[in-house]
Amino acid sequence: MAPLTASSCAAPEQTVELPEGTNTTDQAVVQGRVLADAAPVGGAFVRLLDATGEFTAEVVSSPEGVFRFYTAPGTWTVRALSRAGSGQADLAVTTGVFEVDVPVAR
């Protein structure tokens, strides 16, 4: 367990590689890319919505279009909003690392 800090709401950088030491046995890591016609979209606003459509978290995609969420097993929707358009993808996860790409279009 990492120590609890009051500064830990700061958004981590969206790196291409899974950060070293990430716990993949207790949580579900949902990661992927935002794509417009197969080209990565950086700077997209990417949201994780729960099974009822309620907002759970949001990150800004990296220049490679990469996003990553740390969550619990269940059914989730990843939704992206960008200058290149919007789009979403659904997935069901258990614990571990799960990949999903989100296509966006106008």
Partner: peptide, 12 residues
């Protein structure tokens, strides 16, 4: 969840 889902789920 113990934290927003853009953060690792670790907290005391």
């Amino acid at each position: 969840l113990l934290a927003p889902a853009h953060l690792p789920q670790e907290a005391a």
